[in-house]
Nucleic acid binder design. Structure first.
Lengths: 205, 205
DNA sequence: GACATAATTCATCATGTGTTGAATATTGCC
DNA sequence: GGCAATATTCAACACATGATGAATTATGTC
């Protein structure tokens, strides 16, 4: 027994969940503040854990970030969901899938963390760039290779989805933030579809 | 004369440009790092000025931010440029105008600063939300009020432009980052146009 | 039970943060 | 020239940051 205020030292009995608690807390903080603004101490406090535990388990802040922001969905699965099925409904499927990703908390966290961090941190921007380039484009573009400028089109498409995500979930402009999933699918789906339909190339320089 | 290393104290002769130097440096730092990650000391160093000068001239960091990130273009002018002219070319005009804004350095700075800051800072997010809601929608939506869901459409439109800006200028994914202005206008313009053309409302629930 | 290994707390370090106040020099007005 | 106002530097404060090392307690293995 330790009558004084501080907690007792030493290892806790039982099978501790500290490591996982830290990961959960880290995702929360990185999600809300981005890499630079999230602090080791705030993460530790959120996990109700001593800050030193973070270094004990993960070494340093950067390694913790890499461990926490491990995008918890398989890009291949997403890409397959989007690209399989009727081609003329691909736009709607893309919007619906993308919205679905944001609505699931355990996926939205890392995504937000990555987005927020990418805005101010070079390493995180590189991660996001790589993620967009490799995971998304590497899988979706091949399905569209009959179009001219397939890469550019795919990126324009993704840029729309990301912009919508930011305005809806981060900046929270109305009425975008409160619009229903169906509304957005109906509105944005056809527009996304536009990118993968072979419209007239206008003036091919 | 002061033989020692430090600079001489006291006021400098001549009409100093310190205040403006600070503003320029502040825009640079806020632009590159966002509000939270930019530091008073780094701004001072960039302006080649003592950190105390910042508080002397601006009081504190937040007031400096407000003074520095004073969006240097008139939203009314932009809106007029976009909304005047042939309606069926509005999409292309919007894309071209938006790209033009980003290409001018003295405009791109504050915009980037606002965007970066909005990702991690509530006050900045509120500023951006207000900016989007009031400046853009307040002026563009009235010109589109014959469309259903004019507000939502306008925001979807803006979200695409913002997403493109982020992917092109911040994350710098290729080939988006290196695409020419004309390429982007040709590709994205028609899609933006889609939002302001009265397509079939699909299924009005 | 001895003992290596792992988990946990605490104190502390070096550095960086925004901010303040005093000291000093210049300008501009009377 | 006298003197208030302004501009500039320096030193420091109070606090937050990431990180480290020692001390302490539990677990698991032999």
């Amino acid at each position: 027994m330790n009558a004084k205020g501080g907690k007792v030292r030493g290892r806790r009995p039982g099978n501790g969940s500290t490591r996982d608690d830290i990961l959960v807390a880290a995702r929360g903080e990185f999600e809300e503040k981005g890499y630079d603004s999230a602090t080791v101490r705030a993460i530790a406090a959120r996990a109700e854990v001593d800050p030193a535990m973070i270094h004990h388990f993960f070494g340093n802040k950067e390694k913790l970030f890499l461990a926490a922001v491990d995008v918890p969905f398989d890009p291949a699965t997403i890409a397959e969901t989007v690209t399989s099925g009727r081609r003329d409904q691909l736009g709607e499927r893309a919007v619906r899938t993308f919205l679905g990703v944001w609505e699931h908390q355990h996926v939205r966290g890392p995504l937000l963390a990555l987005l927020r961090s990418a805005m101010t941190n070079r390493a995180a921007a590189a991660m996001l760039r790589q993620f967009v380039t490799r995971a998304l484009l590497g899988r979706v573009v091949p399905a569209l290779d009959d179009l001219p400028d397939a890469e550019l089109r795919a990126e324009a498409l993704v840029s729309h989805l990301i912009g919508m995500g930011i305005l809806r979930y981060v900046v929270q402009v109305e009425p975008l933030a409160s619009a229903s999933e169906d509304e957005l699918v109906a509105l944005i789906g056809p527009v996304i579809q536009h990118y993968i339909s072979d419209v007239e190339p206008s003036d091919g320089s």
